[in-house]
Design a protein around this nucleic acid. Structure first.
Length: 644
RNA sequence: GCUUCCAUAGCUCAGUUGGUAGAGUGCUACCUUGGUAAGGUAGAGGUCACGGGUUCAAUUCCCGUUGGAAGCCCCA
């Protein structure tokens, strides 16, 4: 037994188990309020330690869905993987192996990348280690001894070097394998039950492309085999929701290598969705006092030298084309064009805010490894606008933008508020190269955006190094089915471009003043928005956006004439309708319409023809029964009207 | 861009010690006129991504290019 004094003077007596000492020590120093580990009083348990306000220590078992529980579990499995790799590849150099949101990975420096066979062997070896049920022990060493222990492990030594002098450095040992680690861990390898290697790939040491590329293996583990099955099932379902698969199945877009990577072509169905979305957002903007313009996709390179984009982004732009005396580029963004439009005439303070909007095509040379369906493309259509405002109008205008975003995403599209997060994107203060060097400007802009978010009671997180070069942003971040974290709407505050372009307005005092620019995009880009929409809806688009809203399915040829009339009748109402006049049975036609995710199927036989009626079936498999044509038209029009 | 893997019919995929190809589905024609998720028969359809190399012989082995996938880097 070992005694540990807690803050309140009480004594905690525990078995001499490394994990509990570690926890008790941290808690007694007030360094941690909560920790997890695996063993107490010699009995193996999944435990959670929590320091209460009255300084008492609560110990209880954690639940399988407990975040900390999972992390300890996965982290232990990552050590098991490292041990397996050490057994199979004795020359391996270890980097890091943390738990992540779903599972864990470990980075290894090995001679050759792992093959599928290697991975199968590693997984088999891991299962062996689990079966051996090796006890996991913790110990700690002073820095010099720690360095000595990790001789021949340069990555571990590099990590130890960075730890403060004088601090004891903790290690976890399981049989013949010892790893530098802060813990916590399960008490023994046998606690892990089912394990599965998911994938492997290259990853740069410390995430920098300047460093060596290591081999990373992703894996996951669960206390029960059935949970692993469920997880793999979920992965399979996510695959079905991938917008690239839906886009192919529903004939929304295609790519062709003769056109090029990252350059999707919209097929008629996809073009319909896009046209409706673009009309929708422009109509919305018109009602809010935006003025839309058209500007060219090409510009003289001098435009971007003036704006500052050239210095910051020329590597991500398509290369300049030399024509006679001019050098032209495909534009990567629209701000400079809109700045010039503002500057086209003198403005009074009474005219502000001026809101210039455009559905504009932009071109960015995204790296070949990052292009992805409609999510990341090399030509995109931005739902862009620039708001030219007086400094006293910033708060109100940013607030209006945030309100518009909520109206579009929550009210009109019905996305769950949990499907996206607000991110306040700040500059990295230490990176003077990437961001305009003007501390005062940054302080003002960042604190203004923060204040607006706080005042509107919006939950947000802050991210350093995510700002635009000219100013901070409020980005709305979503997670795709592939677990990519991408921005869709954005609202950015910019004091820099007005300066660069010497924008002005005449104030009440008759003197010239500098406006502030708010850059904003609501749908983000049409392309990325559609990818998000498809994944959120699983391809079951609301009726108003469905490329085909109604499919007419006759029982036999006898009703074809009636079906033609019906089709024309619906078309006159602006409903997108198709008539399936093929020589097939109705069951077959229903199956096909169902797979095309068409909202309404109208089954037409002699009964319907006689009664001048339709029998309605929805894709959600509800048979709505027979109704008159007028009734159906009223119903679907009401639905379309209300963006259902 | 980097690491690894992949590319066979419109689509989804088979095709092992190297001997120039197959299924399902879709498409076309005919039969069938059928009441709520796949009726039957027949036919057409492939320079096995592209370019080189090794070999008597390459869809298969090697190199390169293009395109795709996972991850890393990047993301105005």
């Amino acid at each position: 037994m070992i005694k540990v004094s807690l803050k309140d003077g009480s004594i905690l007596e525990v078995e001499k188990r490394a994990t509990i000492i570690d926890v008790a020590k941290k808690i007694s120093e007030g360094l941690a309020r909560v920790a997890t580990c695996g063993e107490i009083d010699g009995e193996v348990k999944d435990l959670r330690y929590e320091l209460q306000d009255d300084c008492s220590l609560v110990i209880h078992t954690f639940k399988p869905d407990d975040v900390e529980g999972k992390k300890a579990y996965w982290h232990t499995t990552s050590h098991i993987m490292a041990q397996a790799v050490q057994r199979l590849f004795p020359d391996v150099k270890f980097a890091i192996g943390p738990a992540i949101d779903e599972g864990f990975y470990y980075d290894f420096d090995v001679e050759k990348p792992f093959t599928d066979e290697d991975k199968a062997n590693i997984e088999a070896e891991m299962k062996k280690i689990i079966k051996e049920n090796i006890e996991i022990e913790r110990f700690s060493l002073p820095k010099q001894e720690a360095l000595k222990l990790m001789e021949g492990q340069p990555y571990k030594q590099e990590l130890i070097e960075e730890l403060p002098d004088g601090e004891e450095i903790s290690f976890y040992k399981q049989g013949d394998f010892t790893d530098l680690c802060a813990g916590p861990h399960l008490a023994s390898t046998g606690k892990v039950k089912s394990v599965k290697i998911l994938s492997s790939s290259g990853a740069y040491w410390r995430g920098s492309e300047k460093n060596k590329m290591l081999q990373r293996i992703y894996a996951i583990s669960f206390p029960k085999a059935s949970e692993l099955e469920e997880y793999l099932q979920l992965l399979e379902e996510a695959k079905q929701r991938d917008h690239r698969k839906i886009g192919k199945d529903l004939e929304l877009f295609m790519t062709h290598k003769l056109v090029g990577s990252g350059l999707p072509m919209y097929l008629p169905n996809g073009a319909t969705i896009r046209r409706l979305l673009e009309r929708y957002i422009q109509d919305k903007e018109l009602m809010l006092g935006y003025n839309h313009v058209y500007t060219p996709s090409l510009a003289n390179v001098e435009l971007y030298k003036t704006s500052g984009h050239w210095d910051h982004y020329k590597d991500d732009m398509f290369p300049a084309m030399k024509m006679d005396n001019e050098e032209m580029v495909l534009r990567p963004m629209n701000c400079p064009h809109h700045m010039l439009i503002y500057k086209n005439k003198m403005h009074s303070y009474r005219d502000l805010p001026i809101r210039i909007g455009e559905l504009a095509h932009d071109f960015r040379y995204e790296s070949s490894g990052s292009v992805c369906g409609l999510e990341r493309v090399r030509q995109m259509c931005q739902n862009d606008a620039h708001l030219f405002v007086r400094p006293d109008q910033i708060k109100e205008e940013v607030g209006k933008v945030l309100k518009l975003i909520q109206e579009v995403y929550i009210k009109d599209f019905g996305f769950s508020p949990e499907s996206f997060k607000y991110r306040l994107s700040l500059r990295d203060k230490n990176n003077k190269e990437k961001y305009i060097d003007n501390d005062e400007m940054w302080e003002t802009a960042e604190s203004q955006l923060r204040a607006i978010l706080t005042e509107l009671n919006i939950d947000f997180y802050e991210a350093e190094g995510e700002a635009a070069f000219y100013g901070p942003k409020i980005d709305i971040q979503i997670k795709t089915v592939l677990n990519h974290d991408v921005t869709i709407p954005t609202c950015q505050l910019d004091f820099a471009l007005p300066e660069r372009f010497e924008l002005e307005y005449v104030g009440e005092d008759g003197a010239k003043h500098r406006p502030v620019v708010i850059h904003r995009a609501i749908l983000g880009t049409s392309d990325r928005f559609i990818s998000f929409l498809l994944e959120e809806t699983k391809g079951l688009l609301p009726t108003w956006l469905s490329p085909i809203q109604v499919k007419i399915l006759p029982i036999s040829e006898k009703q074809h004439e009636y079906c033609e009339e019906l089709k024309e009748r619906l078309q006159r109402e602006g409903i997108r309708v198709e008539f399936d006049d093929r020589n097939e049975k109705v069951g077959y036609k229903i199956r096909e319409a169902q797979l095309q995710k068409i909202p309404y199927m109208l089954v037409i036989g002699d009964k319907e023809k006689e009664a001048n009626a339709v029998t309605v079936r929805t894709r959600k498999e509800a048979d709505l029964g027979q109704m008159s044509v007028e009734e159906f038209v009223a119903k679907i029009k009401e639905e379309i009207e209300n963006k259902k």
